[in-house]
Structure formats: structure tokens, C-alpha cells
């Protein structure tokens, strides 16, 4: 354990031999190439959002590097206050939703992972069934409506509270914890709650961080339920973003649809894309610190 801890600080564990220069160079080139592939298109989106509308139009819609950078597009977006509110809605839904999902998923996964639970396997199979046969749009809508959740922020959380994929992963993880730990805890006189609190949760920090990230991102990125269950004053940012970005893009029939309706300029559309990305990418570094080596090793040994 000490060597792992030391190694982490040094960047390279003691047992690992130094990398050959050739390998290093090859990895460097590969990573640089990958980053470039990702970043250039991203840069185009950012540049376009900073360019003047005339420059964008003259370039056919996209700008690689704005000649006269301006924040006008961003100013336009924040002027009405709707985008600010939508970001607030999304942050709220993401925070509350992630918390609710984590709690519900962990509890369920824990219960289903305990072998003594009567009927646990049947319940798990039932849940897998729902994963394979997701509800159709209209039945799901009717359920939400009957619960009185229409136009209620809960409608953005409750119908997607537990993701089967995440559940299966957490369950598998808990199941994989050494049985001796549970027995040891029980011998100490711990009940199920204490086992959960004092043994399972501390050891599951990493998996919960990852699942939490998955939930947070899916809450953040979701728009479909908002489009069906919510009215426009309660739209989250992704739905507002869609209204900026794809309005008018897929007209049913240009002559029948109102062709006079003005779509947002490209600069504004790209600015919204950037605005919608920024809050959520700030979450990742928080999760990243769980990806260091030996998190579990140390925990189990102590």
C-alpha cells in the first residue's frame, strides 16, 4: 500500500519500469492527434459563436477563427432571461435528480445484491424485463398525467429515476465485495443499515461517483420528457437549446409552415451550444479524482 501511495505521488508506481522513449513518443502523437480531432470541431463551434453574423453568413455558416470577435451572441441570449432561467431549472433538476437517483439506485442495488433476500432474483428479472420493453410515449404520458405530475419539475425526475444499466453495475459491484467483510461486520453486531453505511458505502465511493456522473449527465442532457410533460416556462436548458438550434431546421413543408418566422442567427445558435456545455463539464473533474489507482485497495486493507 505504501508503495502504491508513494508511486502515485511520483506519477509512476515503483514496480513500473520507465517507458521507452519510442513508446512515449508514439503515445504522445496518438493523444495529440485524438485531441486535435476533438478540439478542432469544437473550436469551430466556439469561433462561430464569437464571430459577427455577417462574417458567418459570408463563410456559409461556420467560422474557423473570427476576425472581429464579439460577445454579442452571448449578450443576446442572456438578455431575455429565459436561458438563465432554463439553466437554473437544469441545475436544480440535475442536482435533485442525481441525488434521488443515487439513493434509490444504491438502496435497490444493495437489497438485490444480498443473497438472502426472498424473491430477489425474480425482482431483478422483472426489472430487466422493463429494460427490454421500455414504455411507449403515450402510456408513459398517461401515467405521468394521472399522477398529477404534468408541468411539475418532478416529471423530469420521477419517470427516469432509476436506470437499469446503472442499477446492474452498482449491484454487481456490491455483490463483488468480499463476503468476509459482511460477515466481519455482522460479527461486530452490525445490522443491515450499519453494513450499508459502514461497509458498503465507503467502499463504493468510486462506483457511486461514476454512476452519479452518468445520472447527472443524463439529467442535464435530457429534453424529450420536458418537451412532452412541461410547458415552455419550465423548460430546461437542453429544450431551450433545441428551440434555438433546430427550430425551422426540419419544417414539415416550407410552403405550409410559416416561412416568415425568423430563426436565430447561427452565432446565437452556437453560443447556446457552448452555454449548455459549460456547467456540466465542470462536474467531470470532481469525479475524476476517484479514478486514481488503488482507491479500493487501501480502503479494504484498513
Amino acid at each position: 500500500m505504501s508503495s502504491a501511495a508513494l508511486g502515485k505521488r511520483a506519477g509512476r508506481p515503483a514496480w513500473q519500469e520507465p517507458a521507452k522513449p519510442v513508446t512515449k513518443a508514439a503515445k504522445g502523437v496518438a493523444l495529440a492527434f485524438i485531441c486535435l480531432l476533438v478540439l478542432v470541431p469544437f473550436l469551430v463551434v466556439i469561433s462561430t459563436s464569437l464571430a459577427s453574423p455577417d462574417e458567418v453568413v459570408a463563410n456559409g455558416g461556420w467560422v474557423l477563427w473570427p476576425e472581429h470577435p464579439t460577445l454579442d451572441a452571448y449578450r443576446d441570449i442572456f438578455r431575455g432571461g429565459q436561458v438563465t432561467k432554463a439553466i437554473g431549472v437544469s441545475i436544480g433538476v440535475t442536482l435533485v435528480g442525481t441525488l434521488a437517483s443515487l439513493v434509490a439506485t444504491t438502496l435497490l442495488a444493495y437489497a438485490l445484491s444480498r443473497p438472502q433476500l426472498v424473491g430477489g432474483r425474480k425482482i431483478l428479472l422483472g426489472i430487466l424485463f422493463t429494460f427490454l420493453f421500455p414504455p411507449g410515449m403515450i402510456p408513459a404520458y398517461l401515467v405521468v398525467k394521472q399522477l398529477g405530475l404534468l408541468d411539475n419539475y418532478a416529471a423530469l425526475i420521477a419517470p427516469v429515476m432509476i436506470n437499469v444499466f446503472n442499477l446492474v453495475i452498482v449491484r454487481g459491484f456490491i455483490q463483488g465485495l468480499p463476503e468476509e467483510l459482511f460477515e466481519a461486520a455482522r460479527l461486530d453486531g452490525a445490522g443491515e443499515w450499519q453494513v450499508l453505511w459502514r461497509v458498503v458505502l465507503p467502499l463504493s465511493k468510486a462506483v457511486l461517483a461514476v454512476i452519479g456522473l452518468f445520472y447527472a449527465v443524463s439529467y442535464w442532457n435530457a429534453w424529450f420528457h420536458a418537451s412532452i410533460y412541461m410547458s415552455d416556462s419550465k423548460f430546461p436548458i437542453q429544450q431551450v437549446l433545441r428551440m434555438y438550434v433546430i427550430q425551422g431546421a426540419q419544417l414539415a413543408d416550407p410552403s405550409a409552415a410559416d416561412a416568415a418566422a425568423v430563426s436565430a442567427p447561427q452565432t446565437v445558435r452556437m453560443a447556446v451550444v457552448i452555454i449548455a456545455v459549460i456547467p456540466i463539464i465542470l462536474v467531470y473533474p470532481l469525479v475524476q479524482r476517484f479514478f486514481v489507482r488503488g482507491v479500493l485497495t487501501g480502503a479494504i486493507k484498513s
Binding site: V57, G61, G248, A249, P254, D258, A259, A260, S263
Partner: peptide
């Protein structure tokens, strides 16, 4: 290409014409 982008091409004189509804004229 989306209709919105097609309008951008027309506005940027990259294309010489565009079929659209009559109401699009003022825009």
C-alpha cells in the same frame, strides 16, 4: 442540409437561389 442552413447559404451568396414559402420573402 437543414432549411436554416440553406437560408444561410443563400444569404451568403454561396447559392444563387432557394425554394421557400412565399412568406419567407421579407426575411
Amino acid at each position: 442540409v437543414s432549411q436554416v442552413d440553406a437560408k444561410t447559404h443563400f444569404a451568403g451568396q454561396i447559392t444563387g437561389s432557394l425554394t421557400d414559402g412565399f412568406g419567407a420573402y421579407s426575411q
